[in-house]
Amino acid sequence: MIGLYSPGRSVIHRAPTLLKLLLLSVGVVVVGVLAEPWQLAIAALVVLSLFVIARIPPRAAVAQIAPILWMLVLVVPIQGLLSGWLVAALMAGRLIVAVALAALFTLTTTVTAVLEAFHRLLRPFGRWVDADRIGLLVALTIRCIPLVTEIVTEVLEARRARGTRGSVMALAVPVVVRSLYAADALGEALVARGLDD
């Protein structure tokens, strides 16, 4: 379950997840209210140095931030025409810095650690949500992703073999039906293995 995690042993990697989450929230709010270009420049330098401290490979960092850049390509010209180019540049800058900060969190924190943090954040709500059931559901879902992916792949192959390309229905119906059968079998196995104990 590596996900987008970029392995490392830096201070940032080893910091407690809840602390990182808190600092991330504060950081995003602070970046959001910066109004002057020089303030934003400082914030950008701080975030950049955090990436250096965490020794994130540049390619991994760019892969995280690039999709946002694509969105900005469309939006910045509109913004510039509507409310001036300085405002547009500041908006883009704030967004990129905040996005980089959030990406840093994801790159330095394992999925397991984040899920544990979620679990702890849910604990005060124990009256309404059963945190153990949710933990089980999370594990079950991670198990099911390859299972369903295989179903999708097989249906795609079968469709190609029969030469019925194109129709979304010819894909969606068998995928859903087979997924439901798999779910029933899994539900049966959960019962047989003592889920209700």
């Binding site: 079950l140 198990r143 079998a185 196995a189 047989a192 293995r193 209700d196």
Partner: peptide, 19 residues
Amino acid sequence: VRRLVGFIFTNPDNQIVMP
């Protein structure tokens, strides 16, 4: 009874529930 009786299904893919 389920503690006394273990059950194996045909397709192990549908019986493995953890990652």
